[in-house]
Structures are given as C-alpha cells and as structure tokens.
Design a protein around this nucleic acid. Structure first.
Lengths: 242, 242
DNA sequence: CAGCTCTGTTACGGTGTGTTACATAAGCAT
DNA sequence: ATGCTTATGTAACACACCGTAACAGAGCTG
C-alpha cells in the first residue's frame, strides 16, 4: 500500500493546520483545502485517497459538496462536525459519506477510522469493480472509461488489451505522480497484496502500451520513465463527466 | 435489491426481541442468535446479508467472534455495545467490523447505518435467490423476463434456448460486474452447490449467445470476457418493473 | 423408429501476458 | 572523456487462456 494522501477540508485555517500537521506526523501525506474550488484543484492535479470534510464551511455546505463529489468520484469521504446529532449523522450517510466523526475527537480514534474506511473501500472495490462513469481526455486522446478502446487525436480507434487498459487507468488516475512498479501492479490487480516485484512484466507492458498510443514510442511524451523509480503519466488529464 | 436478511446476535433475550421486532417492522427479515453456535447454524442454513453483533455476549466475546467470522466470510458486521469508549471502538474496527454503534441508539440511526454498510458492501449475496420476473432493456434490446425471446433493436424476434436465457439473466442481474464461471453456473443452476468447474460449457454457451445477440460476435460489445476471471455484461441495463 | 433441437465435451488454433536474454541508455566515479 | 555499474527497452519465447468447430448424447416429437 502506498502512502495515503489525505485532503483536509476546513474553512478554519487553524483547524486545517492542526489536522494536516497531525496527519503528517502519522505517516500520511496531508493536503489542505478551504472550499470546493480548492478541492477540485487538488483532485485534478493528483491522486487523493481520502477526504476529511468539515460539515460547516462558512458559506458552503459540506453536505452538498459531499453529495456532489460522491456523484462524480469514488473517493472515500469522512465527514467531520462539531454537531453530532443523529439527524446530522444521517444526513451525512444519506449523501454517501463513508463515516462521520464529531469534533472534538480523540486523535487515535481518527486514525482508526481512517484505517477502517480505507480497508472497507479496498475490500468492496476488489469485490465489485466500481463503475467508472468517468471519461478521460488527454493530449487529444479520449477514453470512455468503460470499453477497451481509445480514440486517437486523428479519430482512429485503438483496441487495448485488458492489462493495457488497467495500466492506462492506473496512470490516468495519478497524472504527474511517479508510480513505482509495485504501485502500478497493485492498482491493476486490485487484489490488494502480493509482491511479485521481481519480474519485468510492468516494463514490457509499458512498452506495449507505448507502441499503441505514443506517436513516437522511442521518445515517449505521455508515459515517461523515472529512472530508479517507475513511470509517470506526464500530461494533463481531463476527467469529463459522462 | 432483495429483502435484507439480518442476523441479530445478543445474549439478552429481551434485547433480541426488541431489535428483531423493530427490524421486521422496517422491511427486513430479522433472525436471532444468542451465541456463536447459533450464528453458524443460521449461516449454514441460509443467506445472511448482515450481522448485528453485540460486544458483550455473557461468556463469549463479540470481538473474537467478529474476528473469526471475518476470517471466514465477507458478511458485513455492525458491532453493538453499551460501552463506547474509544478503545472499544478501535478494537471493533481492528477486527474488521464494518461499523460500530453504541447502545442505546436512535433506531433511525441504526437503519441509516445498516443502509450505509449495505451500499458499501453491495456485492449481491447470492444471485440464485433473485426474483426474475423483471423486464429488461439494454442497448436497444428488450427482454420481457418471461418468454424465451428477445427483440433486437431492429424489431426482430430472436429465440433463445433455456440455458441462454439463464446466462443472460445472470449477466443482466449484475451489469458491469465480472462474474466467474462458477458464479454464472451457480446462478443458472440455482441448485446451490455444484462442482463442475473444469468444463468449458460456459465458454461455449457464451459463444452461442454472442452469435445471437451481438452485432459483431468477434468484437462483442455486450458480453465481454475478462481474461482469467470470467465474463461481464458491459452495457447499462434498465430494469423495468412489470 | 428417424429426425430435430439443445447442451456438454473435446480438440485445435489464436491471442494475451509474464519471463528471459541481450542490447542500449543513464548514471557515476575516476 | 573513459570505463564500470545499474536500470530500462524490447525481441523472442513459453504457456495459459479463450473462441469455436466438430462431435456425441439426451430428450422430445411425430
């Protein structure tokens, strides 16, 4: 499992500071956002594993944001609130929050919840592939998120094998973030753990994908290799809602 | 979604009574169990969709039972306890409980939690138990759920054999979810157990169905194969209630 | 009985995917 | 620069998986 990347959303700067610092001290990467615009910026620019979302965000409503995000994405969301009446909790669950936690909270409890939510979503994801209603676009290519074909900038249809699709999805989900071979393998298998780090399977797979979608496979523009690390998808990706 | 079958586990008969009654009044089937032996009996004799497990069970430990069940099965578990210190909660999550709720609890909150957990875990329990009088529509095709014919987008009637219908129903009931050959066989036979995992019967059957309903059987758009896994119905399906 | 349809089995060929081996490129210390 | 070391690209191979044609029973009809 890669390091968790958690997005803390709160309109109070002090609270953001406390939370991100605490999370960083506990082995995660914590990013901060003040409102919906911020959230989208972070989501677009990189992988987010979990969102910690305050219910009261000044003039925006955490509940509504949660509902919107849930409609577009599968990111796990934990709602945070000073109020914790049953009605509040139900509102949170109703819009698809994965958990609900009341302020002030025991910090260890927070970590336990995060762990629990992550293990739950990983389990359900491996059982039933979640539907991906998201359509991707990058450098003129489009991928509808469902079939096994991508269309080139010139309009050609290119058929990809299943592993190639898996690889492409793993990369598309994390644009500009270098992924190790292990992370790629884990993302594709979705079976969670196992360690076949020895083989060169990923390298060969990347090569095959490059011959299909790179204009000049010898000088790749989309999938770049980070020597000693892994591979990066080095182009901006648009997630277009279907 | 079929009716939920919930197993209430508590050593206090009165509590069992209250909970099962409440759940039954709210549209679920509630069964009761006092301890581990009881649980196993129920699990063996029929489908259980969710377990409501008390932490304090007299001489048995709910935590331990939860850990054991989780090791053997994927049934969602909600832990219930009078004590709700943070330590307790963490213990619950640590052994794999899907949620944790404190007594006394608001009954509506309980329902919301159940709903939340189920939607997270939603891999349909057993396909075989589903009711099948529903009328389906997909990609222009319609199937009335009763006869042995489907009508093509162009209005042609295509007659399917018994097994082909069974296969189609199994796939239609789980759109976008890859099914293994075993799952498909189980869903079609409905005899519960089987063993014939070796044969290629399903493959041949899929091929025959494809020649009947795929525009281009060589490049199927409806029934896709997941190498190493099984088959998926890869198109949106409308279930029109009859 | 013959003839028909339905369904599972077998066999063969094609395709996808991981492994290996070697060539090339990138880094690094002289 | 030069040489040495390590990482990556990729062709060739091996194997498992899948599509499907051909075949064989089973069951049904007349």
């Amino acid at each position: 499992m890669a390091i968790l990347r958690i997005l803390v959303v709160d309109d109070d700067p002090e609270m953001r500071q406390i939370l991100t610092q605490f999370l960083q001290q506990n082995g995660t990467i914590a990013l901060a956002a003040a409102g919906e615009a911020d959230i989208r910026k972070h989501m677009a620019s990189g992988r987010i594993d979990l969102i910690l979302l305050d219910v009261m965000l000044g003039d925006e409503s955490g509940i509504e944001i949660c509902a919107k995000l849930r409609r577009e994405d599968d990111v796990p969301i934990i709602m945070v609130s000073a109020l914790s009446t049953d009605q509040q909790r139900m509102a949170g669950y109703a819009v698809g929050a994965d958990d609900y936690i009341a302020k002030p909270f025991n910090t260890e409890l927070l970590l336990a919840r995060i762990k629990a939510v992550m293990s739950r979503t990983r389990r359900t994801a491996s059982l039933a592939h979640r539907r991906r209603l998201t359509r991707f676009e990058f450098a003129g290519w489009t991928y509808d998120g469902r079939t096994d074909e991508v269309t080139s900038p010139q309009g050609y249809q290119v058929t990809l094998s299943q592993r190639e699709i898996g690889l492409l999805q793993a990369l598309l989900a994390n644009p500009h973030i270098p992924l190790t071979r292990e992370e790629i393998a884990a993302a594709m298998d979705a079976t969670g753990e196992e360690g076949d780090a020895s083989g060169r399977a990923i390298d060969v797979l990347v090569g095959r994908l490059r011959t299909k979608i790179e204009a000049n496979p010898k000088q790749p523009k989309l999938i770049k290799t980070q020597r000693g690390v892994g591979y990066v998808f080095a182009t901006d990706v648009n997630k277009v809602d279907a």
